[in-house]
């Protein structure tokens, strides 16, 4: 089986989730593993992917491809798919991948298995497990058409250690990226050092119990000490204490960090669905009967506003 993986990069840096997709591609492919790199300097960048097991890199470098565009990137991947005739196409289920994969699928008239957490080949077609209803259920799906496309959920697949002695052949490619109807005019980057929720190893989330936007400073302090990201429950987001980009759960993000600390969050079913795959869950809540304690590994019954600062200091001392 031959697998094609789109290796997403921004500003010359491959996304962690893209490396995970590539490594899963290597496990899946008993034949050739081909990576597609799109953007400025793609050929130079692509070389390093050999270390993760890619046999060949198709590099699309074009001025119009410096910033993401659904149409431009779809044209490149269509060209790549026509060139190598893969049995499956993988990419990370990031904002870019989840926009690009459906467009490519519709172009090639094949379905996309979205945001999957497990992959295999069955009778020549890809089969995957994907969480649905924000994680309340898992569904196993199989593509009836080839090449099947799948987007891989960040952190669901483990990356392998890079092997610097392995190299890949880099092929410069050209695609007709002419007339783009939609294009990115500008990218507004967040502050340096912000950690994306879906990629964070540590998340500290606050809920209604935090009582105000200002009190999230206590959450930020702990997140900073852990080197993690700040999350929020829907109640906190709907109260305008945090931006909706921080919301964890159904209508927000589904996360799976190593450690999830829920502070002042009672644990509505929509919230639990979004964080139940975390490795270790800590809950701090005044109400000993709060549903969050039923799924938390460790709980402290108490006021998050009092407990968190003490916890921050204690963790700082042992880190």
């Amino acid at each position: 089986m031959k697998v094609l993986v789109f290796a997403e990069q921004r500003n010359g840096e491959f996304r962690k989730a893209a490396v995970e997709a590539l490594c899963e591609g290597r496990r899946l492919a008993d034949g050739e593993l081909i990576a597609v790199v799109i953007g400025k300097g793609a050929a130079d960048l692509g070389g390093q992917l050999g270390a993760y097991g890619a046999d060949k890199i198709l590099a699309f470098d074009h001025d119009l491809l410096e910033l993401y565009s659904t149409e431009g990137f779809t044209a490149c991947l269509q060209k790549a798919a026509e060139t190598v005739s893969p049995d499956a196409i993988l990419m990370a289920a990031t904002a870019m991948g989840r926009d690009l994969a459906p467009r490519l699928g519709a172009r090639l008239d094949v379905p996309v298995l979205a945001d999957v957490t497990k992959l295999s080949f069955t009778d020549g077609n890809i089969e995957a497990v994907r969480p649905v209803y924000a994680g309340k259920l898992n569904v196993t799906v199989r593509s009836k058409k080839s090449p099947g496309i799948a987007t891989t959920r960040p952190k669901a697949f483990l990356p392998t250690e890079p092997d610097g002695s392995k190299t890949a052949e880099v092929v410069a490619m050209d695609a007709a990226v002419g007339d783009l109807k939609a294009r990115v005019k500008q990218v507004q980057s967040e502050a340096e050092g912000m950690i994306e929720l879906t990629e964070a190893d540590f998340i500290v989330s606050g809920g209604r119990g935090m009582k105000s936007a200002e009190n999230f400073k206590i959450i930020e302090d702990l997140a900073k000490v852990l080197g993690g990201a700040v999350g929020a429950s829907r109640a906190a987001v709907d109260s305008d204490w945090r931006g909706h980009g921080d919301q964890v759960g159904q209508t927000g993000k589904v996360v799976a960090p190593t450690l999830y600390i829920a502070a002042g969050i009672s644990g509505a079913i929509q919230h639990l669905a979004g964080m139940t795959s975390s490795k270790v869950i800590v809950a701090i809540n005044k109400d000993a009967d709060a549903p969050i304690f039923k799924i938390a590994d460790y709980g402290i019954v108490g006021d998050a506003m009092e407990v968190l600062p003490v916890l921050t200091e204690a963790i700082k001392a042992v880190k």
Binding site: R15, Y68, T94, V184, K185, V187, Q188, S189, E190, T198
Partner: peptide, 8 residues
Amino acid sequence: FEGGVEVV
């Protein structure tokens, strides 16, 4: 997107 906003 992860890390910012694209103006399209």
